[in-house]
Design a protein around this nucleic acid. Structure first.
Lengths: 220, 220
DNA sequence: TAGATTGTTAATCGATTAACAATC
DNA sequence: TAGATTGTTAATCGATTAACAATC
């Protein structure tokens, strides 16, 4: 693989890969050895050609008339998505969502392990949640440095998101998963993934509104 | 369709509207009366023209040289997204994420109110979480019918998502917010919004993997 | 082989960006 | 008025879909 020919993978593709992975992993457990793009596509409502293009990024090649080897494909997707190399992460903001995430046992299947939590609430500092200690936010830079932490998760209230991100960045953290409903600003080279569940809710809300009452402001 | 003048609003637009709303609401509280698209765009890293096109869906018109009236815009976005008409919703699956959602006080700012929760775990049924009672899942159809519930939220384990959706559909629920990492199948006319936080995580994971190992990623 | 399925190139579709006329 | 900003139409860009040759 010549480096200059490799193209950046599109975000839609990255969003579909976990869907393929889940389907194929289940199928593998049920004994399926080979799978075609049409099968995958029909199960997930994705065009077979698109499936083929998505799978191409993993480097796996299929066999005409047979399809792809399911186990190899599952492995290749995991490898591609970085799920095989567990990255230690810090979580900041031990509210209800932060606590929920700390309770997710399966996080390490996705390449992550939350190793410590942080908060600025003295009542929470010093406690332990799902086996992880809660530290004062002031301790983050030193601990991140000593533990070589590269990933941070923000589950603070919205107004604390930006300051938290800045603390993370100066502490050497290079990838931030931001679960607050705001988009944070970071220097060049820092990877940020904003996950705004209220934006998702807005879509549902809007569609229901449209279905029940029709669009406001556009009298027909 | 025919000569229907109402065009469907694109999903990217629907995702940006809450961002504009939040910015403008804060700005209004700070005393800002008028705002231009360039201001909004520069704050949120969105092209001014795109902001203008997005805002057009709300029906609000701006004044050349002045911009848009902030308060009117905030109201119009809320109206458009359906945040002004509170919809009662049922939540199924009282795990860590479900509990976290039940704790969100601000849900009604987004047009929702979770009025009851359901689970199939006898240990949870009969308890109360953040002021909402937990019922057995078998009680859902009857209660949904009597309370005219139109919206359902699924926070069950992944394998229970599809059966739960089917119960919701036969109970008259018309919009489903699915927070499990699987895409559920529903009949024509039912609105579904899948919110897969692990897909978001996959993107972050993949980008970090790319950055650490030299595969070209898509920096934001 | 014959035919299903892959891998790849071309066409289409939709969203974003650019250009520009209207207007306060 | 002059100029900033809107609203709208055209150009661009990128992702999806269609077409088709290669191949097991």
């Amino acid at each position: 693989m010549a480096n200059d020919t490799i193209k950046a993978v599109s975000e839609p593709t990255l969003r579909r890969l976990p869907l393929y992975h889940r389907l194929l992993k289940t199928a593998a457990q049920d004994g399926l050895e080979f799978s075609s793009c049409s099968f995958i596509g029909s199960m997930l409502n994705v065009e077979p050609t698109l499936v083929r293009k998505d799978l191409a990024v993993t480097g796996i090649v299929g066999k005409p008339k047979v399809g792809y080897e399911v186990k190899a494909l599952v492995d290749a997707i995991e490898q591609f998505l970085g799920w095989r190399n567990i990255t230690d992460a810090f979580l900041v903001g031990v509210g209800s969502l932060g606590t929920a995430l700390l309770g997710y046992e399966k996080f390490n299947h996705y390449g992550f392990r939350i190793v410590a939590a942080f908060d600025n609430d003295p009542a929470k500092v010093g406690t332990e949640i799902h086996g992880r200690q809660v530290f004062d936010i002031d301790k983050l830079p030193d601990l991140a440095d000593r533990m070589h932490i590269l990933m941070g998760i923000i589950t603070t209230p919205v107004e604390a998101a930006q300051p938290t991100a800045e603390i993370m960045v100066v502490s050497g953290i290079r990838a931030i998963w931001n679960l607050t409903p705001t988009s944070i600003k970071v220097p060049e080279g820092i990877i940020v993934q904003n996950e705004d569940i209220f934006a998702s809710l807005a879509i549902l809300s809007s569609k229901l509104e449209a279905a029940l009452r029709g669009r406001p402001g556009k009298e027909s």
